[in-house]
Computed example of a mutant assay.
Amino acid sequence: MIAVLGSANMDLVATVDRAPGRGETVTGHTFTTVPGGKGANQALAAARAGGDVAFLGAVGDDDFGRRITTLLADAGIDVSGLAVGDRPTGTAHITVDATGDNSIVVVPGANGTVTELTDAHRAVLDRAQLVMMQLELPLPLVTAAARYARSRGVRVVLTPAPAVPLPAELLAAVDVLVPNEHEAALLAGFADPVEAARSLAAGGGDVVVTLGGRGALRVGGGTETRVPAFEVEAVDTTAAGDTFAGVLAVGLAEGLDWDDALRRASAAAALSVRRAGASSSMPDRAEIDAFLTEG
């Protein structure tokens, strides 16, 4: 079982020809509300790829929270650990331009109420093979959960986004770190993704740096692996990183070797960018299989 401890937001998405500069107003084309949050997105990506997933987090007692809970449950995700907090559901305000690039402002809301590792969290982690986390919940909680999971022999996968300096005790408890190249550069202090990955992997874990249209790089276990991206026409890149991470987690939980796990994750990310939205763009297992067969 894959446990996901993370954020759940409602994405408020506006599409524009180009993103506005500071102090500028531009006219948008469309506006949609789509359930998201890095935690919920990764949980959905993993579940749609065939993973047995439990989600731990919080939403508000509002329409956004109910929509998110229903979406997760309908995907077969165990939502018994999704608390209803006294703050509104978190929101992410996303602008997507004509090239598919995006900028995002996150308002944590109920996510900010998940501050301590509870007995309910521990009970789920005790049953898990792997736990996925991000940094949209308070950092002390993420650190405590990673350390607890490591003490129970549960594999810890961390997407360090939004990027902030990570305490040594958290990095020491992470088995697989999955930053994009900008996050890797911030964490390691090297602009070159290969140097950054090597530096971050020096502690003994595996590091997978996502490189957008250039694919992904994995460093760990004394080896380096590059996986090229699949060539597709991008509509919206919002969910690519979370889709990649969620599907990678499924591959690792199923015991795939690194090459196969990375290839499946890359294929899923490619499929996700061909559709708009976050949760609405994530492929299911059959789509991933068909895409790999055709490719």
Rank of each mutant, 00 (worst) to 15 (best):
G36V: 10
A290G: 03
D257Y: 11
D242K: 04
H29T: 15
E254S: 07
L125F: 12
S199F: 14
L71D: 09
A83R: 15
A146E: 01
A245I: 01
G189R: 05
E116N: 07
I104S: 00
A188H: 02
M10P: 08
L217S: 06
A73K: 14
A145V: 08
D206F: 05
T27Q: 14
T33P: 02
V235W: 08
L158F: 00
T27P: 01
G222P: 09
L170T: 05
E169G: 08
S281F: 07
L135F: 12
G295A: 15
G60C: 05
G39M: 07
A265K: 03
D126I: 04
P167K: 04
V227Q: 14
V142E: 02
L141R: 11
V247R: 03
A265W: 10
T33W: 05
G90S: 13
V157W: 05
T243Q: 03
V207G: 00
T159S: 10
H121G: 11
A163G: 02
T91I: 13
T293K: 15
T238L: 12
A14L: 14
R263T: 15
V59K: 13
A269M: 01
D119I: 02
V105R: 10
E169M: 09
E195M: 09
G295C: 10
R198F: 05
A144F: 03
D289F: 08
V235N: 12
G57C: 11
V273R: 00
L262W: 03
A149N: 10
K38H: 09
G90F: 11
D97A: 09
A46D: 13
E224P: 05
D11L: 13
A240P: 01
